[in-house]
Design a protein around this nucleic acid. Structure first.
Length: 519
RNA sequence: GGCCGCGUACCCAAGUGGCCCAAGGGGACGGAUUGCAAAUCCGUUAUUCGUGGGUUCAAAUCCCACCGCGGCCUCCA
């Protein structure tokens, strides 16, 4: 088995990723107060590319991605539970949308905006749908488990259903002297009890104290032993979502969820942990501290994989700049999942990627080219019964080796794609006289990582449907034009095409007659 | 204020001391094909890597300064 070299945020150098056959992989997933945007998906899809690469190399990967459905606080600058519950904010937004009749498409009219569970379920379902369209394998697997009557939480756990495991972990931390109940009744992690705190992010406790500045709420800070101590359990009898615990009814801190769920599903020590770069501190730093202290092991995740942020048209993505996109927004415009997936993963995960509409089109053309190659190979393979073991490897078979090598080199997707493109663009004669079965298998092996060939059609129901009247009007014009062309009446043919263009219809003449699509 | 990353053609983007007068894709342009288009195919498109210095026989790649962009420093993928 070939070894993949991958940059590890923890050691700050490239290292060989686990050589064992079976690997465990935990990814920080979405929060479900709103639809996931393309920046979120860049992080999730890069984790997916890593997972698929490891599988291409022959590993068996158990990949877990959580769906955070606990309502955290909006103004929780001190990590101590201030502000408003985000799920309540989402509920209010939904309630307003409901009143004004502007519920997001697909939202059931009887959704109860005052129920946090209903809101979380609503957005979780939408996330899973987007994720499956984009080929996020863990979401596809979880769906398969669900439809066969199993429990999808084993791959995509929900914190609200894992509270007992979190409570157990917090109890262990308290018992081990790593956590304490403060005067305000809340349970905090004692960062000074874990000397390695700060190793992942490079932050030292001193720097944190300096950098904390005015964002720390003095009232909360006063009860903690160290300003960097973070919340594990917040007793709050009025909170929107609350559960019983030895420290009173309340809710868990933000960081304990992932530690508890990773442990529950993957064990005390895991091979790979992924997330966006902004998760490094404080979230992942705190996870390491909690997990190591609860398990008494020196290591929690052996390898940390962080994806850098996505920019849009060269700028930071933000709602106010009008460059904020969810996957659903783009699907609704007719963007294919294949093109979006490729656009989001084709830049190296440790560089800031720049999402552009032009780039999306570039990706669409690449996918189209690969699809044509696939169709051509399927056709040749049908005619050639026997696998040509004796024939020399073709361009795609040779490209597969380069493709794999590029991915093994810190997941160099750009170079991998270049290898594929070069093979597809090889002169036509290079593609004949080689075994089409082996060529096709090589193409599909590359696509098992890229994951685009099966997703090159617009999402059903996403593009605005045309009325039957419109369609029949277009068909009539197409027929008229065909008649004109048959009579070689070119001016009439062009006149009809101009009319179609006015309707927003583009017409293309192919060997099987004309086809049309909305321009 | 502290820490960190980045800046390669019209656009996206690989390359991190000699194989680079810099991969791959898109676009543009020229040609083939087509009634004309579309699609497809063939070809052209950076002596140069943010700017200015330096190190070296050799720099896009290392060092310094400056300019620009981005991330983190208890919401965030």
């Amino acid at each position: 088995m070939r070894d993949a070299r991958l940059y590890n945020s923890l050691t700050r150098q490239e290292c060989i990723i686990g050589t064992r056959l079976a690997l465990s992989f935990y990814s920080c997933g979405p929060t479900v107060y709103d639809d996931a945007h393309i920046g979120n998906f860049r992080s999730f899809l890069n984790a997916d590319i890593l997972r698929r690469t490891l599988e291409l190399l022959g590993h068996r990967v158990k990949h877990v991605m959580n769906i955070t459905d606990v309502g955290h606080m909006t103004e929780d600058s001190s990590a101590d539970g201030g502000g408003e519950d985000k799920m309540a904010v989402a509920g209010r937004r939904l309630a307003e949308a409901k009143k004004s009749g502007k519920l997001p498409p697909g939202a059931s009219a009887d959704i109860d905006p005052s129920s946090p569970t209903a809101i979380a379920d609503f957005y979780a379902a939408r996330f899973l749908e987007d994720a499956r369209h984009l080929g996020l394998k863990v979401a596809i697997e979880a769906e398969a488990i669900r439809t066969s009557g199993g429990n999808p939480d084993t791959l995509m756990p929900r914190p609200t259903r894992c509270i007992p495991q979190m409570v157990v972990m917090i109890e262990q931390l308290v018992a081990g002297g790593h956590a304490y109940v403060a005067q305000d009744g809340a349970v905090y992690f004692d960062v000074r009890s874990f000397p390695a705190y700060g190793r992942l992010s490079g932050n030292t406790l001193d720097q944190l104290r300096e950098g904390a500045g005015d964002r720390i709420d003095a009232a909360h800070q006063a009860v903690k032993r160290h300003p960097a101590d973070f919340l594990l359990w917040k007793p709050d009898s009025k909170h929107l979502m609350r559960w019983p615990s030895p420290w009173g009814e309340g809710y868990p801190g933000w960081h304990i969820e992932c530690s508890a769920m990773a442990r529950m599903l993957l064990g005390d020590e895991i091979d790979i942990h992924s997330g966006g770069e902004d998760n490094i501190f404080p979230h992942h730093e705190c996870e390491v501290a909690q997990s190591c202290c609860a398990t008494s092991l020196p290591v929690f995740a052996r390898h940390w994989f962080h994806t850098r942020h996505l920019q849009v048209e060269g700028e930071k993505m933000s709602k106010s700049k009008g460059n904020f996109f969810t996957a659903r927004d783009l699907f609704a415009k007719g963007v294919t999942p294949a093109a979006l997936r490729l656009e989001l993963v084709r830049t190296h995960y440790r560089s800031n990627a720049n999402f552009t509409m032009q780039g999306l089109q570039d990706c669409q053309r690449m996918v189209d080219r690969w699809s044509r190659m696939q169709a051509q190979l399927v056709g040749s393979a049908k005619q050639s019964v026997a696998a040509g073991e004796h024939l020399d490897p073709g361009p795609l078979e040779r490209a597969l080796a380069q493709f794999t090598e590029a991915l093994c080199d810190d997941l160099n997707v750009s170079r991998a794609i270049a290898a594929l493109n070069e093979a597809v663009g090889a002169p036509p004669e290079a593609h004949t006289s080689v075994c089409p079965h082996r060529e096709l298998a090589s193409l599909l092996a590359m696509d098992s990582v890229l994951g685009v060939l099966g997703r090159n059609t617009p999402v059903a129901g996403a593009a605005p449907a045309q009325s039957p009247e419109f369609i029949s009007a277009v068909e009539t014009l197409i027929t008229q034009r065909a008649a004109a062309r048959a009579a070689k009446d070119w001016p009439e043919s062009d006149r009809v095409r101009a009319e179609l263009t006015k309707l927003g219809v583009a017409v293309k003449d192919g060997p099987q007659g004309a086809t049309w699509s909305m321009a």
